[in-house]
Amino acid sequence: MTLLSKQTVKSQSDYRTRLNASIECAYFLLHQGLPFRCHDECECSSNQKNYLELLHFLSRNNEAIKRVTFNETPRHNKLTSPDIQKDITQAAIEEITNERFKMMRENDWESLLEKVSSFCIKHDIDILIMDDEYKLLDLMVLGDQLDTYIIDLCGDDEFSGIEVIKLLLLLPVATATVERVFSAMHIVKSRLRNRMGDKWMNDSLVVYIKKDIFDKIDNEAIMKQFQNMKTRIKQL
């Protein structure tokens, strides 16, 4: 093995160790609904807030992490920026979504399809056939297509009760879900996070509310999603 190859293997190993440590920090904070950052995160600050302080704690108690974090790594590749934190969270959400679809297929997918089919038959609506080849991306697009479909129907007098139909479809899950969301929001959007954006708040809430699924996802899966996201961005 050449010197360059050895350096490449070592840099890749260091990167994985650093990314895994960053995921561990994000996992703990997301699981507890805690803020990540503060206004003063310079190296001279006595309190760099939760994310960086937690990473400092890990580095002090783990020699392998200490060797690849903070001053021991290139400035452009520390994996501690706000964008990296949000990307890690997004990768976790994608894994939660995948796990949720898997659980639906294994447990209550057939029951859900039966209810949807019954509704479609009753109202003379074409039934969409969703086989195993139906892609997750296609399922995500369905939400936008449904919104467009509803807008079109609202302009038709024959379907003036479409809002009532929407309410009937949403009501069984809305009451319990909304209560959980508002309860979680009081924890996630605290006084220290009163300026957080909608996207970041939504992502934080999803992970906090679905922590039962989040707990089942290992760091390796989040790493793969994170790398896939970075690859997609480079290809754009």
Rank of each mutant, 00 (worst) to 15 (best):
T148I: 07
Q227I: 15
A92H: 02
V178N: 02
K216W: 02
N20Q: 13
F159R: 01
I121Q: 04
Y27K: 09
S111T: 15
R67A: 07
D156K: 11
F119V: 00
S22T: 15
D203Q: 14
M1C: 08
I165M: 08
K135C: 08
Q48V: 04
S118M: 08
V181K: 04
H31R: 10
D124M: 13
N61Q: 05
N47W: 02
K102G: 07
Y134W: 06
L19I: 14
N71A: 01
N219S: 14
D14V: 01
H39T: 14
T17K: 07
L171R: 07
I222Q: 00
I65V: 08
E72V: 00
V164P: 14
M201K: 07
K224Q: 12
I165K: 05
F57N: 06
E158I: 03
M196R: 09
I129G: 02
Q7W: 01
I127D: 04
S45T: 03
I84H: 05
L128V: 15
F70P: 03
E43N: 11
N107T: 14
I222S: 01
L113W: 13
S59K: 08
C154A: 11
A21N: 09
L168C: 07
I127F: 13
V173I: 15
T8G: 08
T2I: 03
M223T: 15
S13Y: 07
Q145H: 11
S45F: 13
L128W: 09
V207I: 15
M196Q: 09
E179V: 00
D156R: 09
K211H: 10
N107W: 11
N71R: 11
R75N: 09
D156P: 03
N107P: 01
K211M: 04
A92L: 02
K115A: 07
N62R: 06
E43G: 06
S190C: 15
E53H: 03
F36E: 01
E114W: 08
L236G: 11
C42H: 15
D203F: 13
N77C: 12
F101L: 12
L19H: 06
K166D: 10
I217D: 01
H123V: 04
F101T: 05
D218N: 12
V164C: 08
V173L: 10
D83K: 10
Q235P: 02
L153M: 12
M223H: 10
E106N: 10
N20Y: 05
S22F: 05
L153Y: 06
L137K: 10
F214W: 04
D203I: 12
M229Q: 14
A92F: 08
L139R: 09
R232F: 06
E133G: 05
E133N: 13
E114D: 13
L153A: 07
F28L: 12
D14H: 07
T175A: 06
I187A: 01
Q225M: 09
G197E: 07
R37I: 05
